[in-house]
Amino acid sequence: MANPNYSPSSEDEEDKRLMALVAQGDDHALRLLVDRHHPRLVGYLKAEVGSQTTAEELAMEVFIRVHRAASRWRPEAKLSTYLIHIAHNLVLNEWRRKTRKPTSTLDSAPEPGDQSHESARQVVELEESFDRAVGQLPLEQRTAILLLVQQDMPYEEIAVAMKAPVSSVKTWIHRARTRLRELLKDHYDNQ
């Protein structure tokens, strides 16, 4: 999992220090590490699997695996990339185990009526269309577009996390954008 362009920042140095402590069985360091990284990890996993509960379970498994591998971990890439790499593998396993059942994160829809509600309804519809469209993408395309757009990861890091060449990542992202335009053509003007 080496990234040739990787140069550690102060945040990475802190991750490295915490990982060394975790390897020695320091629970406080593990807590700090989890607090630093779990929000983005759960966010990514929720977008992947569509369920908050499953996302939390998978994130938990990611941190247990990190704890197990802490003594063997070498800081050749960002810890966040390493976490996403493990999470991606777990998502692959989860998908092999069962078919995806996307769940809406929207708890309540506004009542139809006045213009503000009409506008809110359109926003809700668009949000649901996005969820459905992203959910319909093939796994590699979805992961690649999520890591690029949602997690702001550069292509190189996505390639490391997905254990694939950068060229493949670029292809998946291009195809994902094309597919999303097709799926959301009702909401957007045809090009």
């Binding site: 989890v34 983005r40 977008a47 941190f63 992203v134 999303l180």
Partner: peptide, 26 residues
Amino acid sequence: ADLATHLGRSRSVAVSGFADRVVLAV
């Protein structure tokens, strides 16, 4: 832009007490 906005909303999902749950699981 809409895709970035939509996905960006769930970029970070903090779960209270999550670190404690992880430590217990460990």
